[in-house]
Design a protein around this nucleic acid. Sequence first.
DNA 1: ACGCTACTGCCATAAACTGTCAGCAGGAGG
DNA 2: CCTCCTGCTGACAGTTTATGGCAGTAGCGT
Lengths: 230, 230
Amino acid sequence: MVARSERLLTLLQTLRRYRRPVTGTVLAEETGVSLRTLYRDIASLQAQGAMIEGEAGIGYVLKPGFMLPPMMFSEEELEALVLGSRWVARAAEPRLANAGADALAKIAAVLPPDLRDMVDSATLFVGRKRQDEDKADVSAIRKAIRLERVLELHYGDEQGRISRRRIWPFALGYFEHVRIIMAWCELRQDFRHFRTDRIIDMTIHDARYPRRRTVLLKEWRDTQDTPIEH
Amino acid sequence: MVARSERLLTLLQTLRRYRRPVTGTVLAEETGVSLRTLYRDIASLQAQGAMIEGEAGIGYVLKPGFMLPPMMFSEEELEALVLGSRWVARAAEPRLANAGADALAKIAAVLPPDLRDMVDSATLFVGRKRQDEDKADVSAIRKAIRLERVLELHYGDEQGRISRRRIWPFALGYFEHVRIIMAWCELRQDFRHFRTDRIIDMTIHDARYPRRRTVLLKEWRDTQDTPIEH
DNA sequence: ACGCTACTGCCATAAACTGTCAGCAGGAGG
DNA sequence: CCTCCTGCTGACAGTTTATGGCAGTAGCGT
C-alpha cells in the first residue's frame, strides 16, 4: 500500500547522499528495482516538484535542497511558520529575505482559502523580543479575529482615561514589546489600534460583525501611506 | 499514477470544508469512491499522521490544522523557515512560541543529517530589522561555514586598527543591525566574533579547517554563561 | 430496542505497477 | 565519423495492488 511512496522517499535520500551525478543503473540497484521502473520513479518525483536533473551520458543530480514529506501542522504551528517566514523576509539580508518570501509563497500556495487569509492577518509589525505580561487572553483575541466576532473592551488610553468600546478586530500585530489589535472602532467609526496591555477587561460577543475581516484588512491597508507588504 | 494520492488530498480538503462531523457515506460520494475504499483512504491518511477522528454514530472530523503536501524547499528557503521558526520561538507570546518550537522540531525531525546541523548553526542572535549594507558577501560567508573553509580577513576593529586574521567560521548571527560571524581565531587561539560590516576584504581558502564545525559550535556554546538555546 | 455509523474481513474484478525488450537521442571520447 | 555510455519512451505480459460489494461486529444516540 505504501511501498511505492516509501521507495520514492528512499530514492530521494539515496540521490542526496551522492554529491556527484549517479547513473540510473546504480540507483535502480540501490532501490532494488529495475531500470525501467527507476525511470518512471524519477519521472514521478519530477512531476511532484523534485529538482532532479538528468543528462544523457552523465547521470542524475539532485539540486541542493530538500523535499519535505507530507506533514501535519496545527493552526498555531502554521501561524508560527508564516510569522517567522515573514520576519525573515523583512529583516534578513536580501538573499535570505528572498528565500523567506519564496518559502512563504510556497506554503501559502497550498493552503486552503480559509487558512490563507491567516497569512495576511497573522501579524503586521515586527519588534523586539521581550514581551510584557498582560492579562488579555491573546488566544481569545485571535479567536475573535478568526470568527469575526465583536469585541467589547474596557480600555485605558495614554492619559489613563478609561473608555468602553465595541470594536471589530481583524488583525493582531507585534510592535516593540506590546501587542496591538487592529480593529474598526464602532465609537469613532474609524480604524483604531489597541494595545493589549491597556485592555482592562474584554468580552467576546456572539454576534459577528457585519463586514468581512479580509475586506477590513484590505481597506485598512489602503489607508496606510507606507504599504506594509512589499 | 497519482490518482490515489490526489484523491487523498481532495479528501482532506473536503473534510476541512465541513466544520461539523461528516459521515463516511457523504465523503465517499464527494470523492467519487465506494464506502469501503473511503474507509481505507481514511486509514491511509491517519497512518500518515493526519488528525482525523471518527466516531461511530457521528462521523469524521478533521482536527484544526493542515497537512502540507510534499514540497520542495531550497537550502536557503529551509534556512529561512528554520530561522523564522526560531525567532518566533524566542520572541512571540508563550503560546505561539511553543507552536514555533514544535514546528521547528517537526521539520528538523525529517531533515537528513547533513541538513540538520544547519538548524543548529543557522543563526544565534536575533535583533531589529534594518540591515546596513556592507560589502562582505554573506552568501560567500555562509558557503565558507558550510564547507568548513578557512577564512582570511582584513578586519578593522573598534579603534580602527586594521588586522589580518585567519579564522574558522562556524556560525552566522544577526544582532541589532549588523551580522556577526562566530569563529575560532587562529591569531588569538580563542573564539572571537567579527562584524561583517568591519570586514575590509576577505578570502575563502581551499583548505578546510582541521575541526568540525559542529564541534566548534558546541564548544563555543559551552563557553557561554547564558545558554542560547532554551 | 432501534437506527445510524464506524470499522473489519473476505473475495472477485478492475486498475495500476513492474520487468523485459526494443528503439531513439544526446554527450564523451577516440 | 564511430562507438560507448546514458537518459528517455513505447509496447506488452506478468504480477501486484486497489477497488467495490457483501456480510458482520461494535459503539453512539434516541
